[in-house]
């Protein structure tokens, strides 16, 4: 989780990811952020997040993103 938080804050230093729970619903993250963040996550955790998982509920909060990462890590 710490590693994920690091990636997130690096991509968007202006946000407090501990608090945000509507990152996508409120348009806080744009598509450029998503592309960067998913790319970084794939590299850092050595996983390949599927396009099918790019849905708002998976990216609305750091916690939700972490769950997706864990899902992929368990599959590998």
């Amino acid at each position: 989780m710490d590693k994920l938080m690091e990636i997130l804050t690096e991509a968007r230093p202006d946000l407090d990811f501990e608090k945000e729970t509507r990152l996508i619903d409120d348009d806080i993250l744009d598509s450029f952020d998503i592309i960067t963040i998913v790319g970084e996550i794939n590299e850092a955790f050595d996983i390949n997040i599927n396009v099918g998982d790019l849905v708002p509920e998976n990216f609305n909060s750091a916690k939700a993103i972490w769950q997706v990462v864990q899902k992929y890590m368990n599959e590998e």
Binding site: I35, N42, E43
Partner: peptide, 20 residues
């Protein structure tokens, strides 16, 4: 376009290499 072109393109392996 975002969901069916932009994301699949940028998440593809080839493009990932380019991003890196």
């Amino acid at each position: 376009m975002k969901d069916y072109v932009l994301y699949p393109l940028t998440l593809s392996k080839g493009y990932n290499k380019f991003i890196r």
